[in-house]
Design a protein around this nucleic acid. Structure first.
Length: 442
DNA sequence: GCATGATCATGC
DNA sequence: GCATGATCATGC
């Protein structure tokens, strides 16, 4: 693994997630230096606190807000075990937040403690290993950035209302886990001795302390989807943007060599000009070759390789045009128009200070209106000049956005010009200097 | 060092 | 077989 992984930004769920990803495969004690005399190293409930403190270096607010309030992210750390088929499954339910009987009766679904705190959670999974101190238990699968999916919302809402309803009826002491489907009210705190019972607003009878939790089965569903992950953002309410970021996140900062190792030893053969693009495609497709969601959305994926100075050596090419046809085209129906109107996905590599090329970042972009006007101007100028002299077309110095240059298989790959001679096929290019500007903003 | 010209390996 | 995305090569 590389050593220049960045830390994270507390106000960005994506950044927090990316940082959490770096813990996959490690235990807390392997990832950070821990103080010598940690207490409660066998208390599994303690691991979440320790991860927050020593890995994220973060002090959560002591109120009803999520652990990372600015990002709206609640951190959860929970145990998994292997089932017979070798898949990771939840070891137990996921405890979310305490139920306050006095308070819940004053809440509504649209503003309640549980939803406010837990609507978005970063769930990290460690392998439950008995008798091993919690800080040495490994995070064996990628964490999950969970948002209550639209499809699950009605059930979770009705579960919450069911629990609230019992308290409203003065039956908090009668609540059971079987009342609900996804969201359970599990017993919290050891034993049921009288002094540990809580008061409830509409009955004199004391009720055991309970907490909202995701039932084990529900958590397992999430785990299964997290492990299969065959489609981008499947059922996690992730936009294509978020899902793409997620796919790439764990490779950011890796050198080409490290990426190559990680992607089935996919190495660059001499002169393989599509190597970086193929790497990106493989990451996006998780080993397969299809990137159907990206294609369906009409997203234009481009790789950009920055030199150590932050600028790409090369301009960015588009398909060749036909000297004879361009004269009859209209801008809005041209292929260059269609390209510059698209959403771009830039996969950016950069050479670091030691000359090692690393995977820098990914980002979406679409061309600002003024620049599309400039692209249009270059296209129109090209159309005009092809009719006059197909050997005199807009060069790189004539526009800060785009130019025209050869695009051919070899020296024989030529097209007939309106002047009746043959010329190497040409295409539109986005200037390297323009790409440098653009990529610095994503 | 940049603009321009030439062409490569690959996937479909 | 060829279009494609991308990179190499050259000249000033």
């Amino acid at each position: 693994m590389s050593t220049n992984k960045a830390a994270y930004e507390k106000n960005s769920a994506q950044s927090i997630y990316n940082f959490a990803l770096l813990l996959t495969g490690k235990s807390l004690s392997e990832a950070v230096d821990l103080p010598e005399n940690l207490e409660n190293v066998r208390d599994r409930g303690k691991l979440g606190t320790l991860v927050e403190k020593y890995y994220f270096n973060h002090e959560p607010p002591n109120d009803h807000n999520p652990d990372f309030p600015e990002a709206g992210v609640e951190l959860k750390v929970t145990g998994v075990k292997k089932d017979k088929s070798g898949k990771y499954v939840a070891k137990e339910r996921l405890v979310l937040t305490m139920i306050n009987y006095e308070h819940i009766v004053k809440e509504s679904w649209h503003s309640n403690n549980f939803y406010n705190k837990c609507k978005r959670m970063l769930i990290m999974f460690y392998l439950f290993t008995k008798d091993v101190p919690v800080v040495e238990r490994r995070f064996v699968i990628d964490p999950l950035l969970y948002e209550i999916p639209e499809s699950d919302l009605p059930i979770i809402k009705s579960d919450w209302e069911k629990i609230q309803g019992k308290v409203l009826q003065g039956k908090a002491h009668e609540i059971s886990e079987g009342d609900t489907f996804y969201l359970g009210a599990c017993r919290k705190g050891a034993g049921g001795t009288k002094e540990k019972l809580k008061s409830q607003p509409f009955s004199e009878v004391g009720a055991p302390a309970r907490a909202f939790s995701f039932k084990q089965n529900y958590l397992n569903q999430l785990l299964i989807e997290n492990q299969s992950d065959s489609q981008l953002g499947a059922s996690f309410n992730l936009s294509i943007e978020e899902a793409t970021q997620k796919r790439f996140a764990k490779y950011i900062g890796d050198s080409i060599g490290e990426l190559s190792l990680a992607i089935n030893h996919f190495k660059r053969d001499k002169n393989h000009k599509g190597f970086h693009r193929e790497l990106a495609t493989k990451i996006l497709a998780k080993g397969g070759s299809s990137v159907s969601e990206i294609e369906k959305a009409g997203i234009e994926m481009k790789t950009v390789r920055l030199q150590a100075n932050g600028k790409p050596r090369e301009s960015m090419s588009f398909p060749a045009f036909d000297f004879l046809k361009i004269g009859n085209e209209i801008w809005e129906e041209s292929s260059f128009f269609e390209k510059v109107e698209r959403k771009f996905l830039f996969v950016v590599f950069k050479v670091d200070g030691e000359g090692v090329e690393r995977f820098e970042k990914v980002g979406y972009w679409n061309m600002p209106y003024e620049d599309r006007l400039e692209a249009e101007r270059v296209w129109r100028d090209t159309q005009r000049r092809v009719a006059i002299n197909a050997h005199d077309l807009p060069g790189m110095t004539e526009s800060h956005v785009a130019h025209v240059r050869p695009k051919a298989k070899d020296g024989n790959d030529k097209g007939l010009t309106p002047q009746g001679d043959m010329r190497t096929k040409q295409c539109f290019w986005l200037n390297a200097s323009y790409i440098a500007e653009v990529v610095s903003t994503i």
